[in-house]
């Protein structure tokens, strides 16, 4: 048999400068209207919660019984609750708590997940198999139940709250980081770096971390809404943030009890909470598409 003629290949790979991955991702993200909307809405909501209280004429605990559960008006844009507190100011403060718990707990989960995943991915072999088997087993357990148990046993303390949530939400992150490390370890440029005699630390710093960063960013963005949801869920059951502090979750709980007479007490915090979740999810999905991250289970 004769051999086929050497057919010229149109695809020539050109080396891309380091910044272009992020630049390309940004160009792709910019085209995703929902993600941009999500990002913008997040910035607006965060600014509203951070700067808002300073501009508000009310404080979140200031009671005014002459203003008992008033519907939204020019005086109180979002109405007042049954203690006559200005709901807009309370939403700002609640947002600080909700977003704060979301970010802090996500950082906890990020730290645990990245360390665990990187450890498993780097060491490989039996250690890896054991570590990931543990993750598989933990995946199978009803974790929210354990968080409730933790909150019951150790009292309802906000620091413990996000530690508990963070300790529960790290599993996916660990899987992703490990998966990334494993694929990267196998790739030619890492082998090339090893063959060139680069030091381990340098390989980790210059090659592995920048390449694993994309998925980590994406899943951090997607963990925040999951964590906020868990916090609100616990607060709704009365097991999360305790009065006088209030998060959006506790406000929804209080609003739900009074929704028949004063629906704005439910609808407005629920709208803020849902909009934030929407925005984070859309932004996360957009980032995932832009950075072309795929979930892999192994």
């Amino acid at each position: 048999m004769t051999q086929s003629p050497p057919i010229t290949n149109a695809a020539t790979t050109t080396a891309e400068p380091g910044a272009s991955l992020w630049h390309d991702a940004w160009l792709r993200l910019r085209k995703n209207r929902l993600a941009i909307f999500g990002g913008a809405a997040l910035i607006v909501i965060s600014l509203f919660c951070l700067i808002g209280p300073a501009c508000s004429p009310y404080t979140y605990e200031q009671q005014d019984f002459s203003q008992y559960a008033k519907a939204p008006s020019t005086q109180h844009w979002f109405g007042t609750d049954k203690l006559g507190r200005d709901q807009m100011t309370r939403i700002m403060h609640g947002g600080r708590i909700s977003l704060g718990v979301g970010i802090c707990a996500t950082l906890v989960s990020l730290t645990i997940g990245v360390l665990y995943g990187a450890l498993a991915g780097f060491i490989g072999g039996k250690t890896d198999a054991t570590l990931m088997r543990i993750v598989d087993i933990l995946y199978a357990l009803p974790f929210t139940v354990f968080v409730i148990l933790l909150m019951v046993v150790f009292g309802r303390n906000i620091v413990l709250l996000f530690a508990a949530i963070g300790a529960v939400e790290w599993l996916t992150m660990a899987r992703i980081v490990r998966g990334q490390i494993l694929t990267l370890k196998k790739q030619e440029f890492i082998e090339a770096a090893i063959a060139l005699g680069l030091r381990k630390r340098r390989i980790i710093l210059r090659h592995l971390i920048p390449n694993a960063l994309g998925p980590i960013i994406v899943y951090t963005t997607l963990t925040i809404p999951a964590v906020m949801l868990l916090e609100a869920f616990l607060s709704f059951l009365g097991l999360g943030v305790q009065p006088p502090m209030s998060s959006w979750g506790t406000m929804i709980k209080d609003g739900a009890e009074l929704m028949e007479e004063f629906p704005w007490l439910l609808v407005i915090p629920a709208a803020f909470f849902s909009l934030t979740l929407f925005s984070l999810n859309f932004l996360g999905d957009g980032l995932r598409d832009a950075l072309d991250v795929r979930t892999s289970k192994d």
Binding site: I252, K253, E260, L266, A270, S274
Partner: peptide, 22 residues
């Protein structure tokens, strides 16, 4: 579906009661 994912049960439940029951 995105709305279904982002509207948690504790928001939907009271809203549904408000609309369909009350």
């Amino acid at each position: 579906s995105m709305m279904g994912i982002c509207l948690p049960t504790f928001v939907l439940g009271p809203l549904f009661i408000l609309v369909f029951a009350l």
